[in-house]
Simulated assay, not measured.
Amino acid sequence: MTDLTGKTALVTGATAGIGRAVAARLAESGADVVVHGRNADRGAELVSAIAGKGGRARFVAADLSSVEDVERLAAEAGPVDILVNNAGVYEIMPTPVTSPAIVDRHLAVNIRAPFQLVATLAPGMAERGDGAIINICSTVAHMVAPVGAVYGGTKAALETLTRYWATEFGGSGVRVNGVAPGVTRTPGMEQTLGGPVDVMNRLTARGRVGDPEEIADVVLFLVGDHSSYVNGTVISVHGGESSPLAA
């Protein structure tokens, strides 16, 4: 079992879906978790749920589309041993109706915020000679569709940043990896699809979509000692995803 006792983890977008599962899993493994989100009520509920199972967590609210808020989040989180860049926006639509404001929002939350957090927090990890950064990417970076180009483009960029940061900080003891989920059973995905995610079951070899906890288990592996030689890798977690054209 992975033991994260004595380590502090910051998980962005932790009040729902994959982020919530990751925060809970890290806390169960002994980490002190800084839970990030925008909704204070959901943040307080998660902190309470973690405490109810004997874990330790605190909530910090921040709008990741704001440079100043991201700076404040990093400052309030303080030195961390684990950073999970999970928060993201995804508005799936054709390119002609994707406004500049939507493009800017995707770039700010999906790229600039992780970049700021790594730039601020990774040097401290490097000074201490140890750390783990996990970027939650997406299989849409490779499995393209006729809609959602701006989202897919930002996730492809995050994969590239993962490899650059792994090279930049790896020699100082900081490992940087990514996890690329396929369709996962989350409230956000149900909202995007306009209904239950089970309609996507036929698109995986497992015959079902993933659960957030299954993504969290891979994140836990990547931040623990059992993956000590894994760096600059993006692990796809999609149950054997196939093209929508094959359905």
Rank of each mutant, 00 (worst) to 15 (best):
L10I: 01
L10W: 01
G13C: 10
G13A: 03
A14F: 03
T15I: 06
T15D: 01
T15Q: 00
G17F: 03
I18N: 00
I18G: 01
I18A: 11
G19M: 05
G19E: 00
G19L: 02
R20C: 11
V22A: 06
V22M: 10
A24D: 08
A24M: 14
L26T: 01
A27L: 07
E28Q: 13
E28S: 13
S29F: 11
S29M: 07
S29R: 15
S29D: 12
S29H: 08
S29P: 06
G30V: 03
G30E: 02
G30Y: 12
A31H: 02
D32F: 14
H36R: 02
H36S: 10
G37L: 02
A40G: 13
A40L: 14
R42E: 05
G43A: 14
S48F: 13
S48T: 14
S48I: 08
A49C: 07
I50A: 03
G52D: 05
G52L: 02
G52P: 07
G54P: 01
G55Y: 07
A57I: 04
F59D: 00
F59G: 07
V60E: 07
A61T: 02
A62E: 05
L64G: 01
L64T: 00
S65H: 07
S66Y: 07
S66H: 07
V67F: 13
V67S: 14
D69V: 08
R72L: 07
L73P: 04
A74W: 05
A74M: 08
A75S: 15
A75Q: 14
A75T: 14
A77G: 06
A77W: 01
G78S: 13
G78Y: 04
G78Q: 02
V80K: 04
V80P: 04
D81G: 04
D81M: 15
D81F: 06
V84G: 03
N86M: 06
V89F: 09
E91T: 08
I92S: 00
I92H: 05
M93R: 15
M93S: 09
P94Y: 06
P94M: 13
V97I: 15
T98A: 07
S99M: 09
I102P: 05
V103E: 05
D104G: 01
L107Q: 10
A108G: 04
V109W: 06
V109M: 12
R112S: 03
A113F: 08
A113N: 02
P114I: 02
F115G: 05
F115S: 12
Q116F: 14
Q116R: 14
A119W: 08
A119I: 01
T120R: 15
T120M: 12
L121R: 04
L121F: 05
L121P: 00
A122D: 02
P123G: 03
P123W: 11
G124F: 12
G124M: 05
M125G: 02
A126S: 07
A126Q: 08
E127H: 10
E127P: 12
R128Y: 13
G129A: 06
D130C: 13
D130M: 13
A132R: 09
I134R: 00
I134T: 08
I134C: 10
N135T: 11
N135K: 04
N135V: 06
C137T: 14
V140N: 09
V140S: 15
V140Q: 09
A141R: 07
H142F: 09
M143T: 10
M143P: 09
